[in-house]
Design a protein around this nucleic acid. Sequence first.
DNA 1: AAAACGTGGTG
DNA 2: TCACCAAGTTT
Length: 356
Amino acid sequence: MEMFGRKLIKWYLKNQRKLPWRETKDPYRIWLSEIIMQQTRVSQGLEYYRKFVSNFPDVFSLTAAPETKVYKLWQGLGYYNRAQNLMQAARTIANEYQGQFPETKEELMKIKGIGPYTAAAIASIAFGKPDPVVDGNVFRVLSRVFGIDTPLDTAKGKKEFTSLAGRLMKGQSPGDFNQALMEFGAVWCKPRNPDCDHCIFFEECYARKNNIVSQLPVKKPKTRIKDRFFYYMVAQTKNGVILMKKRGPDDIWKNLYDFPVIVTNERTKPLENLIALFEKISFNDMIYTIKHISNEYIHLLTHQRIHAVFIRLIVENFPENTPENDLLLINKNDIEKYPVPRLVEQYLQDQKLIKH
DNA sequence: AAAACGTGGTG
DNA sequence: TCACCAAGTTT
């Protein structure tokens, strides 16, 4: 523990980049740099920082500036809310704090645009408070060196990493420690292809030792919803025998029961064309009539939006022998005995094939 | 709690 | 090419 901070700061004092906001303890400039650098690379933000400092050397000059001028200077940086928050924060500090930045993380966080990260950064760098910063770099370095696979974009993850950073910080200068940790992540422990062989933590790094550097840090999977279109064939004889199908192990609803289905990634039309395909997954030469085509059901899963259409067929007869490949013929009175996805249950209810 | 918010660099 | 990522915060 102790050693981690010592080595880190030793590395930092020797290897840090020379950046303008590192040459001041002025909380105004620290704040300005932190807001500008949110979600922004140094190479992109550097010139903006210089422009803002020279145009607005203190919080009062920023307060006095016309909005348009501030936006103009911000142009091209992105996240334009930051410019608006910047002006509001400047007014707050000028009016409610007499131009003096509050010194605690808690108080700083009351100011617009200052969240947990920025508050800790100002408190530690400008005022020497022992508040650990936890940004993307810190997540990466700590998750690798200490082998933490808690997803960082969760409440649990944030708590865990903040707590660890706080313990590691003990005995070190908070501002230096925080900047060292971020700098190390930015220039050495990079997201991809870090130079582990020459790393100061070569010996102790958990990820390096276990060859999982590229797998850390862990993030929650993006909830990118995929649309899928399910076209179900609900085939039934006149005397009430329904063809069902057990779902396989490779998709959603494992081992539940539904019907023969055509799955596509886009909407299919006309629907009638699907029936030829149905014959391939059930019986050849079905003699059928289309009894009903349902509306599209939308069924939401964590990562999928299922668009389901049920095509109900009346067939003359199923073959006598029991079909292969997970197909089964059941009496419609027994349908409730089979576990089905909620989507299918809904359909069956709507069709009065089951009660409730 | 998840989504929106911008732009530019990278492998 | 394009998904991923960058000194996050707000709603």
